[in-house]
């Protein structure tokens, strides 16, 4: 069991962090995810990949957390640093922060797809299973989200 936690806590934490934008919320959500995994392990359908099932719980828990704090101040640990220059987006140590800030401007439906694709490295089919959406919708959301993110980062860089 310890092995399962070791294997999945990092990807689950990273997915939660990129959706929530806050490390404490991500840690709390990760704990909740594993509790749910073990509580509902008999509900796991072996037709699907185990990691898809775990990710589905992770994404749903993260989205629940987003809903809970919708009216709270976002990005508590990501607001301290203003944009510096467009060039920095590409290769500086601020990359992570810039992308995270841009991610947080996206609607959570778009954000979830981007996180699963670019942070978790899932294929379209896997994202489709995790989010229980048609592949066509996954593609549409991903492509739109990329365009939105690109514009956000470009706009930030030109400020």
């Amino acid at each position: 069991m310890s092995q399962l936690v070791s294997q999945y806590q990092r990807p689950v934490y990273n997915a939660a962090y990129r959706i929530l934008g806050n490390k404490d919320d991500a840690a709390d959500t990760t704990q909740t995810v594993f509790l749910k995994v073990f509580e509902h392990i008999v509900d796991y359908d072996p037709k699907f990949k185990f990691f898809s099932w775990v990710y589905r719980i992770a994404i749903n828990e993260s989205l629940n957390q987003v809903k809970k704090r919708r009216n709270q101040e976002p990005l508590a640990d990501n607001q301290e640093s203003p944009w510096q220059s467009p060039a920095e987006v590409l290769d500086s140590k601020h990359l992570c922060k810039r992308v995270q800030e841009a991610l947080m401007t996206l609607n959570v439906d778009y954000r979830s797809v981007v996180v699963l694709k670019h942070i978790s490295g899932c294929s379209y089919q896997q994202i489709s299973e995790i989010l229980q959406l048609p592949v066509k919708t996954v593609k549409s959301r991903l492509y739109t989200a990329r365009q939105l993110l690109k514009k956000t980062l470009q706009n930030d860089g030109s400020d």
Partner: peptide, 29 residues
């Protein structure tokens, strides 16, 4: 280039306490 940038976002290490906290909660054998 933009997609490469997204793919290059580094992973964040979970807090060190997290694994133990999870294991405590789920009563590992």
């Amino acid at each position: 280039s933009f997609v490469r940038l997204l793919n290059d976002v580094p992973e964040r290490a979970p807090p060190e306490y997290l694994q133990q906290a999870i294991e405590r909660q789920i009563r590992l054998p």
